[in-house]
Amino acid sequence: MKAVIEAKNLTKRYGDFTAVNGISFEVKPGEIFGFLGPNGAGKTTTVRMLSTLTSITEGEAYVNGHDVRRERKAVKKTIGVVQDVSNLYDELTVEENLRFLAKLYDAPLENVSRLIKDFNLPAKKKFGKLSSGYKRRTAIVAALIHEPPVLFLDEPTVALDVQSANLVRNMIQLLNKEGKTIFLTTHNMTEAETLPHRIAIINRGKIVAIGKRNELRKLVGKGVKVRFRVEPLSNRFLRFLEPYSPKPDGETLVVMVEDPDTFLEEFWGLKRELGFRVLHLSTELPSIEEVFLQLTDSNEDGERPCACGGCPL
């Protein structure tokens, strides 16, 4: 399947500072592609380059088959961009803002009333008087006015309360179901756990991992996390745990194990032998947050093997 967004060795330099350092990736049609990274990692700069807002220093980028460097107007017609701030005009009503953008994009004016109705926006209210949640929803709707097949969402839930953030996430899923390809930058782990089909993690301008969630989880730690609470804790049991470096987490202990079957076999064997009570026992894969923290903190400069196996990292 032909990629909708394609970046090849994309680089952005500001003087001596390299904000984005030769990154390459592809986004497939209908995909939600999560772009994760700490503050200053290069997420927004990447979005700005792909959406024509910032010039590309080196490398190539294509959106919907159009060269971002040479066919800026064609790229702009096929993308909708929601920036990390809700940047519409305060003194204009929601409807006036959308009508203005419809005129700029040569979009049918019927789209304005349809979108206002579909997303239940207060048409006659001035944008500046809206709550931050409504502002963000209106900003997302504004990006849809010309019915673009690709959406760039830069931190769409930043600074929103829980309810508004949830509404925005539902909106993103709805738009994806309608067939939009979505490039989503975030450092919100709830979003990263639920929305993207694939994720790229960027750190200090370089992509350090790329792949599906489960593929990324396999890149870090020793496979599976086992959490348990037993009573009483005998010395024998603690000696058994020693090689796994157990960490207390509330009332439970947590260990990372490569082979959970063997670990649990030994665990139940000891229970039979020592007779302790098991008050809690669960297994879980590492969260995306853990993957993110490991790849962006402990490995700030290095590159990790790519989970997809096929991308040019």
């Binding site: 959406s51 024509t52 807002l53 107007k73 702009k76 017609k77 961009v81 920036q83 701030v85 940047n87 519409l88 005009y89 953008l101 700029l104 994009y105 040569d106």
Partner: peptide, 10 residues
């Protein structure tokens, strides 16, 4: 950043 609305338009 409303200026960027204009810059993003075709």
């Amino acid at each position: 950043k409303t200026f960027e609305r204009l810059l993003l338009a075709p």
